[in-house]
């Protein structure tokens, strides 16, 4: 029941969106905008258990499996750029099939020249969040 094409289309859509921006400043402005727009995680989900500690900023991630088998993510961060990047990840992966989440090659950050944010040395919690999202994908697909 996977639909890898959906994830690919979502990634390409983001890459296209960012291709409109000329310089880094506009890219970051867009990320910050998305950070501001990200629906805040429900307070109940902002728990210690859901906290992914980065060295620099904190990220919260919650996941639940819907009745149709897809995974719904919600996330938040105390830093707005991280939150914008988190919003991008949620936009790509939320509502997808768990096995797709586990398997997908997330190339869009590299495509838009923001892959340094995914490097583990970046310590913004984003790399750990992606790992955690994929882990949820794995766990939820094993249960179905």
């Amino acid at each position: 029941m996977g639909n890898m094409k959906l994830l690919e289309a979502r990634q390409n859509e983001i890459v296209e969106e960012f291709s409109m921006f000329g310089d880094w400043m506009e890219k970051y402005e867009h990320i910050i905008e998305m950070g501001k727009e990200l629906n805040p995680i429900v307070e109940n989900d902002k728990t210690e258990d859901n906290l992914i500690r980065g060295c620099q900023s904190r990220v919260w991630l919650a996941a639940r499996k819907e009745e149709d088998g897809t995974v719904l993510f919600s996330a938040d961060s105390d830093a707005i750029i991280t939150k914008g990047l988190v919003a991008l990840m949620v936009r790509v992966l939320s509502g997808a099939a768990p096995e797709d989440i586990a398997k997908v090659d997330l190339h869009f950050l590299e495509d838009i020249g923001l892959n340094t944010h995914l490097s583990p040395t970046r310590s913004n919690g984003l790399a750990s969040m992606v790992k955690q999202m994929k882990m949820y994908g794995l766990v939820f697909s094993a249960r179905s």
Partner: peptide
């Protein structure tokens, strides 16, 4: 109203190397 890690990220884009975090 700003997070140190956001400031550090943007300062880096402008060639300014500072340390952010604890």
């Amino acid at each position: 109203g700003t997070h140190p890690s956001d400031l550090g990220t943007l300062l880096d884009q402008l060639g300014v190397a500072v340390r952010t975090g604890h």
